[in-house]
Design a protein around this nucleic acid. Structure first.
Lengths: 245, 245
DNA sequence: GCCCATTTGTGCGTATGTATG
DNA sequence: ACATACATACGCACAAATGGG
């Protein structure tokens, strides 16, 4: 019906047709509609379904094959070669490693660095500080079975936890660090979720194809008295992860 | 430094540089870094910042101007011409209209249609039915101040609420329909959030630029006894909306 | 082995889009 | 506005591999 061509494409999307097809097919796979080992529809049928040329479909399938999502065999077809998306639970008492337990056999958190900086307007607002107040910033990448699944940045009030950066090196989890600093318990006070394209740094760190979509979760953790102790900004590849409330 | 060109672009992203620039600038605006009336950086400076040619930056600014996000004045610069993103609250007791009250002056829900169908595997699983059971499907688009902000599809068990479709025509809200059918209260039992590109139909209905990113929220509402009564799939343009947990 | 339909792989020509200078 | 280079998308044709009679 509506033939989507580079030329007829009404508003000139700036997103190639082959990429939209690749995204749609990948969605069926990570969303569970197609399971590992399943045979995809033929190139002709996909071309028909998306109103595109077979070459364009092939370009999309090549991209998915390069990602390791599918495998193509001449004369036989294309087959699903990867698993469902991981679910990251979001709740008042969520802890990173607990949430993903059972979904991956090996979870690892890599610390990219810590540094002392002056709170930007948004960080200050989230932590209830004046703009420019000293905060400790922590940059991490998390991996499940060796694959990067999140890029997180956290800010902690320096005045309240001057040792935060030093302690983090020796500990595996944020929970453990806070426990060592006298905060026995904390809860998620608020979470905002949005989505956007990955920038260059995120593309590199998360080993994504350029133009990949990220789910962005932005939240504040507070202690039992409701005092904000940590502001976090996490970015998840939308292809690999979904958030469960 | 890292010059991003169509040619040097490592793996051929399928997303044009002008679109990535437009997305990044729009993000600063809807994310609150730039407020209505603020002046954007000059074209030369933006070109420098993104490592692109000034022509390419101009292409991005043209796209944003066409969307109504910015306004460009010869000899003066470009200025922010739109407001912050709307926040859609997600909680156990969230109602659509209550959640957005105060953020827009006029909210409207448009019914695209209702129909009786056989539950697909995913719908059946969510509602606790056998695959193929009869369900009523309801398709809607919601608008805030005339702008489409969500595309939702809901499924209700036909056996439990045979009059659902008929009643919806006369009522404004799902809450009112359920109230008329004897369900005085219901809560959100589970929610899964993901992100992806819009397809052709969504692009048309939500009046988006092709290739736009959607936040997808998938959830089950249950009555006070925990019995699933409605399965909903909502899609929000990530440029306009964020979800707050 | 051979034929055949199906499916993927490849080559060529053309038009338009993207990005630079 | 112009010139250049490459990417994207299409259409047609044919080659190569697979699997079933």
């Amino acid at each position: 019906m509506t033939k989507v061509t580079a030329t007829s494409d009404s508003h000139l999307s700036g997103v190639a047709i082959w990429r939209r097809i690749a995204d749609a097919v990948r969605l069926d796979i990570v969303g569970g509609k197609l399971a590992r080992g399943d045979k995809l529809a033929g190139e002709m049928e996909l071309a028909e379904r998306f109103g595109a040329n077979r070459h364009t479909v092939r370009r999309a399938l090549q991209a998915l094959a390069a990602e390791g999502v599918i495998r193509t065999e001449q004369g036989r077809g294309s087959f699903v070669d990867s698993a469902k998306r991981l679910s990251y639970p979001i709740g008042r008492r969520t802890r990173f490693s607990e949430g993903l337990a059972g979904q991956a056999s090996e979870l690892r958190r890599q610390v990219l660095g810590t540094r002392l900086e002056n709170a930007s307007a948004s960080v200050a607002a989230a932590l209830g500080l004046v703009s420019g107040a000293k905060v400790t910033r922590l940059d991490t990448v998390s991996l499940a079975d060796g694959r990067p699944i999140s890029r997180a940045t956290s800010w902690v009030v320096y005045r309240d936890f001057p040792d935060f950066a030093a302690r983090f090196a020796g500990e595996q989890s944020t929970t453990a660090v806070f426990a060592g600093l006298g905060v026995s318990d904390y809860v998620r006070a608020s979470t905002r979720i949005s989505a956007r394209h990955a920038d260059a740094e995120e593309t590199a760190l998360l080993k994504l194809a350029p133009g990949a979509i990220l789910l962005v979760s932005e939240g504040v953790d507070a202690d039992v008295n409701g005092r904000p102790i940590l502001y976090g900004l996490s970015r998840f590849p939308a292809d690999l992860m979904e958030l469960v409330v």
